[in-house]
Amino acid sequence: MSSPISPRFAETPRRAVLLLPLAALPARAQEESFTAAERALLAGRVPVDGGITLDIPTLSENGNSVDLSVRVDSPWTLRDHVTAIHVLSERNPVPRVASFHLSHRAGRAEIATRIRLATTQQVTVLAETSTGQVHRAAREVIVILGACVEGG
């Protein structure tokens, strides 16, 4: 999925201290739980790249609040419209950050929220349509200060 040679591995030991207890799980376990969460959402379907505009800063000073907006291209008819948008994180303790369920009456697939990111990682968005298709988009976000719990 992500490149094996990634600068974030170099910073893991230093961040691991800072991030306790939010990032109490080892990175490997987190990535496994992300993979499992994505697989569960896909339920055997093969995602199509593209069709999603994922707006998230490439570099975030503060992992406690990262702006995220998602727009999915859709003809938006009764038969073919977006039914769900899922936001997944690769290295947060909880891989499923948020899910948005849209009815036909949403009118278009355009949502925004703010998320927490424990550390530099890839943010993945899956969009399901009423025709059974799944679109996928992913972006790497560099997090300077992780969403950590410091002190009591």
Partner: peptide, 12 residues
């Protein structure tokens, strides 16, 4: 129902 959102601790 027009909109529903499931939130986790990963939301601010």
């Amino acid at each position: 129902e027009v909109f529903r959102m499931a939130l986790s601790a990963g939301v601010t």
